[in-house]
């Protein structure tokens, strides 16, 4: 059966750590980390990267448009 797998790439320097993306993730893939970026924000990270389905919810709500989402079908 084909499975959908997703992954996200965050432009860390542009993330403001606002956190509005976090509750939109249906698979709890993302969270704000402890590390800070150059502007001092706790940027968003994919803490459970394997669970991402590439649904694009997080990227859709991000006010600073710093998330790119990729999605593929994997066989097996």
């Amino acid at each position: 059966m084909a499975k959908i797998k997703g992954t996200i790439v965050v432009d860390i320097d542009k993330c403001k750590g606002c956190g509005v993306c976090v509750p939109t993730c249906p698979t709890k893939t993302i969270a704000l980390g402890r590390e800070v970026n150059g502007k001092g924000y706790n940027y968003m990270q994919a803490v459970n990267p394997d669970t991402c389905t590439g649904c694009t919810n997080c990227a859709t709500v991000c006010p600073d448009t710093v998330i790119t989402v990729y999605r593929v079908k994997v066989e097996g």
Partner: peptide, 19 residues
């Protein structure tokens, strides 16, 4: 890629507060 930043947005970091 199923969601990427549109080229109509510049690369500038917006001055707006987080969120």
């Amino acid at each position: 890629a199923v969601y990427s930043r549109t080229k109509v947005l510049t690369d500038n970091i917006m001055h707006y507060c987080p969120g």
